[in-house]
Design a protein around this nucleic acid. Sequence first.
DNA 1: GACCAATTGAACTAGCCGGTACATTTATCA
DNA 2: TGATAAATGTACCGGCTAGTTCAATTGGTC
Lengths: 220, 220
Amino acid sequence: MTSPVITTREKRRQASWTQDPEGVRRNILEVARAEFVENGLSGARVDDIAAKTATSKRMIYYYFGDKEGLYRAVLETMYEGIRSFERSLDLGSLPPVEAMARLAEATFDYHVENPDFVRMVMVENVHHARNLKASRTIAGLNSSVVEVTRNIYERGVAAGLFQPGLEPLDISLTISALSIYNVSHRATVGQVFGYDMCTPEALARRRSMTVAAVLGMLRR
Amino acid sequence: MTSPVITTREKRRQASWTQDPEGVRRNILEVARAEFVENGLSGARVDDIAAKTATSKRMIYYYFGDKEGLYRAVLETMYEGIRSFERSLDLGSLPPVEAMARLAEATFDYHVENPDFVRMVMVENVHHARNLKASRTIAGLNSSVVEVTRNIYERGVAAGLFQPGLEPLDISLTISALSIYNVSHRATVGQVFGYDMCTPEALARRRSMTVAAVLGMLRR
DNA sequence: GACCAATTGAACTAGCCGGTACATTTATCA
DNA sequence: TGATAAATGTACCGGCTAGTTCAATTGGTC
């Protein structure tokens, strides 16, 4: 179904080649993602991206128009990823406290496992989310995580377990803040405090503190 | 004592001018800060910075060596700012719970009031803290916030108010995460959720939730 | 197998951008 | 006041960088 990705090694340098739009597109996106994540939008070089693909710079412009178009396409794949993660959450059957803990843990884990997403979001924030705004695709991908949170929260309030009067969105943002920080600020925290937040031990500690903070904030 | 900052307007375009090393340096740093904060390291243009100063590009290289040297100098002023803030904290006389709440609030407020610092830290993380590492100046500016946190925490544990066994650094990082997020992720959150985290009302909510989360996590 | 649209390649370019050469003016101080 | 060092201005450059031109090849269609 999906055509095989063309690796850099097997570059088709002969006079003859086989058409493979899907593969070329995917190959460019993969390389571009690595470059944008590593160097940011302005820091990434189209020539470098092209050199690392199995194809040429010409194809980047053919498929993505310009550098920002390519960046936007990468951004879109990232947001598709987290939306898909959010949809996969199935916490309706768990009791409120367990569900909320599980939500926090899953969110935490997602960010740890997807540093590229985290870095891309950082880059995008440096640019005031200009490309996020410009993407019709991402606009259509509305987040379901707030509704998930609302459901759990309201069940908890009804059961007398959580204190009432809070905004589900704020709860969501708190979880997000505690999850993303470990990855996004790994470098500066590592340098300033001589502490790597991403070792397995550090992550385990930070994970349980995240759950404790979220539940502690909700408990009445 | 400090010479007046030369504004862009009163550029000295005459054949004669007065020397003002301090002023020129400061003027360049101010302009550079705005540009780096707005565009990042690779996004900022030395020509643009020069054009917005009262002096010329020549002086940037005279005083700061190269673009990265200028960036590093800006970064250093930022870290001097937060270290100074940390030293100004005087929470030893407050009871543990109040002191911890006050620490969280003050940290929260500092980030809200210093978005330039927050953005600079973001940019620096995109670059894997390369320039932070390179700065001897910042290395000498060790953070006192962990010791402040440790003091409060240990008093709280001794008083039977906080649960024992936690790392002061982790508590610090939790406060930091919850404080910085509102500013650093304002753009993407604003776009994705249609929610501006930096309105006075939103900040008030997020501020009290931050305190609640931190205390909730510590309470035994 | 001839035609056409989609896809790909190689070489090229205009302008930007970090950095510099060189000359000149201002302050310091003996 | 003259010599020296520090500070500043003007003009310039070489390489990089996003984007393009022009042409060729491929695959499907009738």
